[in-house]
Design a protein around this nucleic acid. Structure first.
Length: 291
DNA sequence: TAGGGACCTGCC
DNA sequence: GCAGGTCCCT
């Protein structure tokens, strides 16, 4: 079906959302045209003018609006974040329209973030696309991401041939463990678990540490109060809140302290704050690397 | 506990 | 050299 979405640009900037490291299954078809997959749905989106998107999909308007959390008022959330942390102003100011997304398929998100450690976004996108092609076809060359059992059955050698490197071993191993615990139903059950319980469950997977567990809790299980502390957030957090830890390396203890501080400061909107801090850091990594 | 190094590949 | 880290080792 086809429909249009009309929102002010400061409420919704699709390009910023899909290239901010939350999802890895979108490509740019033309300057103002994108294509993406989320769960069992594909979307082709054309920006007709600022604030007006035309969407073609095998899903419907509700699935699209859920994916981008369009029912959340981004302006109100930005104001709330500024109340809780005025120091966020420079980060929020230049990234209008960026939104925290809500990917619908926890299995797809689980494996997407298993591709991210010690990696960069361009290659992550390639790898997630390669894994997705083991799933069932949706339309053209678009696939629904496969279940854990299927990923578990991919031989390490095959993934290594596909340039997965050492992740060719860790991904099927984690998949086997997920399948053993019940696959999709297991991840769904963690949605209603407490943050602490979900993290404890996720962190016991091979290849998943504190950071990936937080990413999966935020993007797959929709625990919006979570703020994964990656290298970018670590830089920002030590600059803003833990100056005594600047230039030091992260440890388990520091991770917990920073994570808890940010979670308590920004509450249920911590995930949104993370998105602004992360994208700002990625876009400015050149200048920031200098000093 | 806190450090330090290895790990695949690709792009600066 | 270093990427949205994790694991293993002193």
């Amino acid at each position: 079906m086809r429909f249009t979405v009309s929102l002010p640009p400061d409420q919704f900037d699709l390009q910023r959302c899909i290239y901010s490291g939350q999802v890895f299954r979108w490509i740019t078809l033309a300057e103002d045209r994108w294509q993406g997959v989320d769960g069992g749905h594909w979307y082709r989106v054309t920006q007709k003018e600022p604030g007006l998107y035309e969407v073609e999909t095998n899903g419907d308007e509700a699935t699209f609006r859920r994916l981008f959390r369009l029912e959340w008022d981004a302006q109100a959330i930005r104001e709330e974040l500024l109340q809780r942390g005025p120091e966020l102003e420079p980060y929020l100011g230049s990234l209008a329209g960026l939104r925290l997304m809500a990917p619908s398929d926890p299995v797809e998100t689980f494996f997407s973030f298993l591709c991210t450690p010690n990696n960069h976004i361009a290659r992550i996108t390639t790898m997630v696309g390669a894994l997705a092609s083991y799933g069932s076809p949706l339309e053209g060359n678009l696939y629904r991401f496969p279940e854990a059992e299927v990923v578990a059955g991919i031989p390490e050698a095959v993934l290594r041939e596909q340039k997965f490197g050492y992740r060719g071993a860790t991904i099927p191993r984690a998949a086997g463990e997920l399948a053993r615990r019940g696959g999709r139903a297991y991840l769904e059950s963690l949605k209603s678990a407490s943050y602490e319980a979900a993290i404890e469950a996720l962190i016991s997977f091979p290849g998943i540490g504190a950071k990936l567990a937080d990413c999966i809790a935020l993007f797959a299980l929709h625990h919006t109060e979570v703020i994964p502390v990656d290298t970018h957030i670590w830089q920002a957090a030590t600059r803003l809140y833990f100056p005594e830890w600047r230039e030091t390396s992260m440890t388990d203890l520091k991770y917990k302290a920073v994570s808890r501080h940010l979670r308590e400061r920004f509450g249920e909107y911590a995930g949104w704050a993370q998105q602004y801090l992360f994208l700002d850091s990625v876009l400015n990594w050149r200048s920031r690397a200098k000093g």
